[in-house]
Design a protein around this nucleic acid. Structure first.
Lengths: 159, 159
DNA sequence: CTATTTTATATTGCGCGCAATTTAATTTGA
DNA sequence: TCAAATTAAATTGCGCGCAATATAAAATAG
């Protein structure tokens, strides 16, 4: 494939190499893919994680901060400031849940809801020139999902 | 699979469905995997991206900042402060290349080199309870690599 | 040989991502 | 009932990750 796979010394530390292969591949692929979305989402005034929040809210709104965090595997330390920025951008409204004052409900504004059409364009633009053949894209997605499943169930087991 | 695949409205915008998005699966898998490494690497005094730099340097040292960046898909805005932290931790030495004063060569210190043994332990610990069956791990790795290849070659084509 | 352009790294600024802690509301239990 | 435990979100602090810019050295052009 690429040159860096040749940068190997002839020692026996296969464990380090293999380790590098899987974890680095995921890390780099994720960063690069985010970079592909960045200019497209910038036109909508969104960052990539903000886009993920919008995807979740377009499916159901309002939702609590915790609910968003569960679906995206993010905590309030990440979401609270992110949602505040989205609120000042006019995309969402944040308000305490009257029936449980600990919760904060995040709701799409009309502007946030209407952005859905533009986002649809972005998704279609990316899909129109598919990066990977469908079968490979599905294999990658399923592999990543399987890893997510393992990593999140291990967390539960530790409790 | 998981519950969030049920959080779908019955609209026809398949393109926007979170659970079909390769980008979210990669994003979440990468974040979660980094989280798995975090406590293990913390014992070595390393963050995950610092660990990646060490993996590259253990293969060859010294290397320029640009060379590290090419292999890890990171720029000087990320690497310069990261390498400074690694230098103050005593893991690497940074010095201008005498034959080309624009370059900075990053070299493992003795301490940095000796950390390799401990890192080997970390990699073996993770490998001993394999997260995914080997074939699935390889499929995930190969899919990610293929995507990396596409995304980096597209960047070249834009120039 | 000098002016221009290119290359390599550093700096600045902003938005995550998460550990650790804090604040406040709800639940639990003696 | 009311103190202790639990839960939800916010806050603080730090390390990325990258765009934009700055600085300086080397390569190139005329």
């Amino acid at each position: 494939m690429s040159e860096q796979t040749q940068l190997l010394t002839n020692d026996t530390d296969d464990a380090l190499r293999l380790d590098k292969q899987v974890c680095f591949a995921l890390y780099a692929a994720s960063n690069l893919l985010t970079g592909l979305y960045r200019p497209l989402l910038a036109e909508l005034g969104l960052t990539f994680p903000q886009y993920l929040v919008m995807l979740v809210l377009w499916e159901k709104s309002p939702q609590s901060v915790g609910s968003l965090g569960q679906q995206l595997y993010l905590d309030s330390g990440t979401l609270t400031p992110l949602l505040k920025r989205m609120e000042s951008a006019g995309l969402v409204k944040r308000q305490r849940d009257a029936s449980d004052e600990r919760r904060v409900l995040v709701e799409l504004t009309e502007q946030g809801d209407s952005l859905r059409a533009s986002a649809h364009q972005v998704a279609n633009t990316l899909a129109s020139g598919p990066l990977l053949p469908m079968t490979e894209a599905e294999a990658l997605r399923d592999g990543a999902r399987k890893l997510i499943g393992v990593l999140t169930s291990e967390q539960k087991a530790e409790e």
